[in-house]
Design a protein around this nucleic acid. Structure first.
Length: 397
DNA sequence: TACGCGTGGCC
DNA sequence: TGGCCAAGCGT
């Protein structure tokens, strides 16, 4: 365990002394407060060095051209758990399709999900849609400029609200995203995984926030994490904060932040049916709103039970989900796919519809579609591979 | 508080 | 190539 004595000559030690420092790092006999005439100038140096760096090295990103809270909101939500490079093309397309809050609010959910298709975490799109409707109905179609009201909107938590209010309105609201967690965890050489010290990190983010330039400061903090204080092999020599950084001083930058231990992902075998109508159309179903891939369309199927064959699984699942009889035929494709919390193998088979009218017993909707119109429906990534395989096969019932 | 929730990039 | 990680939120 490190003692405060080890860090007594660094700015981070001053900034994190007292209540900001995790209990594990502080000895009971150490001072917990420092006079403001010492701390304030140090914080000013910290802020100014980052703002100077941002002026030179800050990124030029599409959503930074604008102060339209709607555009910034969209970018913040797309960027949740998603890298900038992935987001940019989605962001551009989205704004062409939904240029303002009102058009988004009045769109059909299916159209919204189609625009989101491939980005993942689809609750973000459903919440964006709902929030737009709430803003039209209750906030005069204007994005709220107060933290408390922004936080009431679905899909907007503390970090997203802080990002929007600081970027759009230059309000002094702190943020704590993945970048900031990493930067601050290194700055103070945090000895626990960041998610075990959220109170400390939020307090530190708020303490160092520059109230004269909150917009630039928050953006700078995220840029620092994204381009310099990166997860692996951070480039400390070019970091404006290297002289203040505890991890750097201790040569621990490659070991921090500590990561949470994860359990291995469970694996599921899935039987999937491509059910052909006599007229050449295919049966798809729409998943229920809640839960995994909610609101998206898919090819029906389900989990293979212990001892069950793929064919028997498909026949059983189709009976349970849609109430119809099928004859399971040739294999179309096998797809391995990793979700955030488990892996699947999709065993996709052609099936012949023997009889019965498909009913939405375990889904929201069912529909026969042709290969030409199937592109209009939003599908999860693993299912788009099935569609691609269908386009390449010559199989017909 | 801990877990459910997607996908692509990176090595 | 499999595991890690990315501008988190809702429950």
């Amino acid at each position: 365990m490190a003692s405060l004595k080890d860090t007594s000559d660094s700015l981070a030690a001053y900034l994190t002394a007292g209540s900001l420092l995790p209990n594990s790092l502080i000895s009971a006999d150490q001072p917990t407060d420092l006079p403001s005439f010492i701390v304030e100038p140090l914080k000013q140096n910290l802020r100014q060095s980052l703002l100077d760096w941002y002026g030179q090295q800050g990124r030029d990103l599409p959503w930074r051209q604008s102060r339209d809270p709607y555009r910034i909101w969209i970018s913040e939500v797309m960027l949740q758990q998603t890298q900038v490079k992935t987001v940019i093309p989605y962001y551009e397309r989205w704004l062409e399709q939904f240029p303002a809050i009102a058009p988004l609010a009045s769109a059909r959910q299916e159209q919204v999900l189609k625009a989101w298709e491939g980005l993942g975490y689809y609750a973000r799109a459903r919440n964006l849609h709902r929030a737009a409707q709430i803003i039209v109905e209750h906030h005069h179609s204007t994005f709220p400029d107060t933290l408390a009201i922004a936080l009431t909107l679905p899909g907007i938590g503390r970090t997203t609200a802080g990002g929007i209010l600081s970027a759009a309105f230059d309000q002094p609201v702190p943020i704590l995203d993945g970048n900031v967690k990493r930067v601050l965890a290194r700055l103070m050489a945090l000895r626990v995984p960041p998610n075990r010290a959220l109170k400390t990190l939020w307090a530190l983010s708020e303490t160092i926030l520059d109230w004269q330039q909150p917009r630039n400061f928050n953006q700078a903090l995220m840029d620092l994490g994204a381009t310099v204080c990166i997860p692996k092999r951070p480039t400390c020599p070019v970091c404006p904060w290297n002289r203040y950084c505890e991890a750097h001083r201790l040569t621990m930058q490659n070991d921090l932040p500590l990561s949470e231990q994860r359990s291995p992902l469970p694996h599921k075998m899935i039987g999937v049916a491509v059910i052909w109508h006599e007229d050449g159309r295919i049966l798809i179903d729409r998943r229920r709103q809640e839960g995994l891939l909610g609101g998206l369309w898919e090819f029906p199927g389900g989990k293979v039970e212990p001892g069950e064959t793929i064919e028997a699984c498909i026949q059983r699942e189709i009976q349970e989900e849609l109430g119809i009889e099928v004859e399971v035929g040739d294999r179309l494709i096998t797809i391995d796919h990793a979700y955030s919390h488990f892996r699947v193998t999709l065993n996709v088979h052609h099936c012949r519809h023997l009889g019965g009218e498909p009913q939405p017993l375990e889904c929201d909707e069912v529909r026969w579609v042709s290969l030409d119109e199937i592109d209009q429906f939003p599908f999860p990534k693993a299912n788009t591979q099935i569609i691609a395989a269908l386009r390449e096969t010559s199989y017909r019932p």
